[in-house]
Design a protein around this nucleic acid. Structure first.
Length: 327
DNA sequence: GCGTCCAGGTCTACC
DNA sequence: GGTAGACCTGGACGC
């Protein structure tokens, strides 16, 4: 893989800061650095001693974000510093505060989910282990869609390598608070590169075609923002996402701010064992059956159930006496 | 060392 | 509308 060919490093020296009071229960560490290792903004972000340094582009503005907790699970307070190249207008700072609130899931009320989960033989363990973990809405569609495409037809190790190469070759690094964090590329940049160049540099294979077409669609056409997708009905948002290049049933469930029940051949095995007590004979053929059972069992809470179970696999394996390791 | 298989899906041609 | 086959790449596996 080719790294650091054209990564631009941008120093961010202007700061504005604020604090948030998320809806309790809220566990800051579990929310920004969850056990399965899903990134808050980018896989290159840093989490040390309870503080997160991350970076992203929001409406063409590169920002660095430093966050830490000053409260506790039942009385949560999060301090946030936002770093930018130049001083931001008041309207922009208000917008960014909303973006970070959404990304933290700060206003998410977990009480309904927890009430259901405590009566469920699987989820009662997960919500106990991960009490206060919120799930937020990412600031933009492009990184989520590229991630979904890179997860397709590849072992996780290779997906991670493709993702790292893509960010290092075409992203932008934010330098702030004595840290450097690489942020995801924006569609405007990817739309102008050749598919063959992307395939060669990042070894993404046939996925290069989907990624460049996706970038063109998002940068040249009016596609709903993540916030607008959140305001649509789940069905409308899903329909819009499936219209994107390289995005099908599974990927739409990953990207949608409404969530879904994204069962692939990997999760078909995990959830197959949890639901039916044994490994499916054929993981690929079990996808539809496992997905239907998850939707039947957890209904409107399917996404949160998926999220909590995937984050809690080692504990669930032990507590339920089911070997959830892949075979 | 070499050939074969297949992986945390989606698209397209064909019926 | 339903479905088989193709699709990049690289690691695992058998020989």
């Amino acid at each position: 893989m080719e790294y650091n060919i054209s990564l631009v490093v941008t120093p961010l020296s202007h700061i504005f800061e604020f604090s948030l009071k998320p809806t309790a229960p809220f566990d800051f560490s579990l929310t920004v650095k969850n056990p399965a290792g899903w990134s808050f903004f980018t896989p290159f972000e840093i989490f040390e001693n309870g503080t997160l340094w991350s970076a992203t582009k929001v409406s063409s503005t590169l920002i660095g974000v430093k966050m830490w907790s000053e409260g506790n699970i039942s009385n949560p307070v999060v301090s946030v510093q936002v770093f930018s190249i130049e001083e931001l207008a008041i309207s922009h700072t208000k917008f960014l505060i909303d973006v970070i609130k959404e990304a933290l899931g700060a206003e998410q009320d977990l009480s309904g989910f927890y009430e259901m989960a405590r009566k469920d033989d699987i989820l009662k363990h997960a919500v106990d282990d991960l009490y206060g973990m919120h799930d937020g809405i990412p600031p933009s569609v492009f990184p989520e869609a590229v991630l979904a495409i890179l997860l397709q037809m590849a072992p996780l190790k290779r997906s991670n390598e493709m993702m790292a190469s893509f960010i290092q070759n075409y992203g932008e690094a934010a330098e702030f608070d004595d840290r450097q964090v690489s942020a995801w590329p924006v569609p405007e940049r990817i739309s102008s590169i050749e598919e063959s160049e992307l395939a060669r540099k990042c070894k993404v294979g046939y996925r290069a075609k989907h990624i460049v077409k996706l970038a063109k669609k998002l940068s040249e056409e009016k596609f709903p923002s993540m916030q607008q997708l959140a305001e649509m009905s789940p069905g409308e948002a899903r329909k819009a996402l499936i219209g994107l290049p390289g995005i099908g049933d599974y990927s739409a469930d990953i990207i949608s701010p409404h969530g879904g029940f994204p069962i692939d051949v990997w999760s078909a095995e995990v959830f197959g064992k949890l639901f039916f007590g044994k490994k499916p004979e054929n993981n690929r053929e079990a996808v539809e059956k496992v997905k239907a059972e998850g939707m039947r069992r957890w209904g409107e809470w399917s996404w949160m159930a998926f999220f909590y179970v995937v984050q809690d696999l080692p504990n669930l394996s032990r507590k339920m006496g089911v070997d959830l390791r892949l075979t």
